[in-house]
Amino acid sequence: MKRSSEEKTKSTVKKSISYADAGVDITSGDRSKQRIKMLARKTFNKQVLSEIGGFGGLFALDLEKFPNPVLVSSADGVGTKLKVAFDLGIHHTVGQDLVNHCVNDIAVQGATPLFFLDYLATGKLEDMVIERVVQGISEACKANGCALIGGETAQMPGFYADGEYDLAGTIIGAVSRDKIITGEQIQIGDVLVGLPSNGLHTNGYSLARKLLFEVAKYGPEQYINELKDKTGAALMRTHRSYLSVIKKLTGADVVSGMAHITGGGITENLPRILPKGMGALVDRASWTVPPLFEHLQQLGNVEEDEMLRTFNMGIGLIAVIPAEKIKKAKAILNRANERHCLIGRIVRGERKVSYN
């Protein structure tokens, strides 16, 4: 006699199957969430109206600080820099990279960061790794005066390799409408002031990893004379925040535009703020390119144009300063002990960067 489908099921299923059997450990996730709450609370201010764990984060905008406010938002990730973090077991700095990158993106438009949301997805949840990542996010949020009010930690077994995760974040900031910096005030003759980067920041890592690990066959812990550092340490230098110096420049009303130099380098990022009919002329000899970029170029015989549109080449932020305000701007930067160099000027022409 044939058995029914119900009888077959009863005979083949020996025990109850849980979510943990499918690879998602809810108990471990709950423990991580408790630690994340503690780290996030360290970033809270009086504008935060909710606890971590709600369906949405609540934040009260200070209308006295931002009359006629405009909200400014940005979302980004850390990219394949995470691969280096996995190899080295260094996880706290990638959280700082993420926050600082997002902070810079809105600060160049005159915005003050208000709050941050993170997204971390992994295959198998490793409590200590997650905690280190969020610790870095928390530290960077606090340093930038930004509240970490929420996020998502997703367990996705089978989607990510063991020991790997992906990381992304969203930042919200505010600026009074009359203080927005878009670049529309840029004029022909304005001076380009470059501020140094702290290495690759968070861009160009796919090419850098190929050149260092595949072409040169360096190990991540190998000391390289040309870099005066270990390969992994050179690659893991933290993406710096320019918020403090940006506030000083904008507070003194000496900038007509600013560009955060990320993926695409100077070549593709500076034109994003140029008005129609204006281009930028950049003097390549005006700053010293850090050894890391020079070594990468040598390893792969990389064309100069390719380097300039892949890496920041040692310039992480460009401030466009009216010629009549350059003396004041330099004084501000000097008082802030901020290294800088005059790297070019705004010229009439196509909305692009030319090099000489």
Results as ranks from 00 to 15, higher is better:
276 K>V: 00
226 E>T: 11
196 P>H: 05
147 A>S: 15
119 Y>C: 12
24 V>C: 12
123 G>C: 06
351 R>Y: 00
199 G>P: 11
79 G>W: 09
293 F>P: 09
82 L>H: 02
35 R>L: 02
331 A>Q: 15
205 Y>N: 06
25 D>M: 08
152 E>P: 05
19 Y>M: 05
154 A>I: 14
329 A>N: 09
276 K>P: 00
160 Y>W: 14
26 I>G: 00
50 S>Q: 04
216 A>R: 03
12 T>D: 15
109 Q>W: 04
133 V>Q: 05
345 R>C: 02
250 T>F: 11
48 V>W: 08
77 G>F: 06
220 P>M: 04
45 N>L: 05
306 E>H: 03
118 D>N: 14
355 Y>R: 00
178 D>L: 11
251 G>S: 09
291 P>L: 08
116 F>V: 01
285 A>S: 06
140 A>P: 11
191 V>Q: 06
289 V>L: 05
84 V>T: 13
293 F>G: 06
221 E>F: 15
175 V>L: 10
203 N>R: 11
182 T>A: 07
290 P>T: 09
93 T>P: 11
28 S>T: 04
27 T>R: 15
90 I>Y: 02
317 L>I: 02
290 P>Y: 13
316 G>A: 06
148 L>K: 07
198 N>W: 00
160 Y>L: 11
249 L>Y: 03
149 I>M: 13
285 A>N: 10
86 F>I: 01
50 S>M: 04
63 L>S: 02
22 A>N: 00
313 M>V: 04
74 S>D: 09
29 G>H: 01
317 L>R: 01
21 D>N: 03
20 A>Y: 09
320 V>K: 01
99 V>H: 10
101 H>S: 15
271 P>N: 13
75 A>R: 11
259 A>H: 01
187 Q>M: 14
161 A>S: 06
214 E>A: 05
254 V>N: 02
30 D>M: 13
338 E>P: 00
197 S>K: 07
293 F>C: 08
118 D>M: 14
17 I>W: 02
154 A>N: 13
181 I>S: 02
221 E>R: 14
42 K>S: 13
81 K>D: 00
159 F>M: 12
141 C>D: 08
283 D>G: 01
165 Y>D: 03
181 I>Q: 07
127 D>L: 13
23 G>C: 10
302 V>K: 14
140 A>D: 05
169 G>L: 08
16 S>R: 00
62 D>N: 14
93 T>Y: 04
184 E>Y: 06
332 I>R: 09
300 G>N: 12
283 D>R: 10
55 F>I: 01
64 E>D: 15
350 E>I: 03
312 N>D: 12
180 I>P: 06
167 L>E: 10
202 T>L: 14
21 D>H: 06
285 A>Q: 06
263 G>N: 10
320 V>E: 01
11 S>H: 13
268 E>D: 05
